[in-house]
Amino acid sequence: MSADVWERSVVRVVPPLRPRKLAKVPFVELADGRLQGVVSSGSDIARVYVSSIATRTHGYSCGTNNNRPCGGLHGAPCKHLRALVDEAVLQYGLDRVARYLRVDVGEGEDLVSRLDGAPEPAPAAVVFSRFLRHLAYLELPDTTEPIAELHWFPATRAVG
């Protein structure tokens, strides 16, 4: 952003997200000091895994929404965590995810292999409730009352 952002009412502050398939990983976010999200179970449509990686320690965790630890965590990130990272890279771009996790990784390199954390507990319930809050936006009634405030938020073209 250049210096004239100071004097403009309309400035793009949040970089646009790239579209991606949502079926496997319906929710990814860079928030609360973690790359965190929700991964749909491959075998049970009613089950999801809550997976997260901390930015500083790279400590990772994965478990079901009923707080059962993921069986795939054997001293290394499970397939859910790998899927989480892959989808985060699709959504935010490799640069932004790598910067957020504070790792150096070149284009085309595997981000997961650069993480040097160990399993560590994470507040899965918080992440899951953030996911539910996220989904709840799709359930709110729409409106034909004009929202004048949205003039500050023009739709723009996605990049890439």
Binding site: P16, L17, R18, P19, R20, L22, Q91, H134, L135, Y137, L138, L140, D142, T143, T144, E145, P146, I147, L150, A158
Partner: peptide
């Protein structure tokens, strides 16, 4: 003018 607005999530774009 006539408007319609809906809430959504950030992964729904384009």
């Amino acid at each position: 003018r006539t408007s319609v607005a809906a809430t959504k999530v950030d992964t729904i774009v384009g």
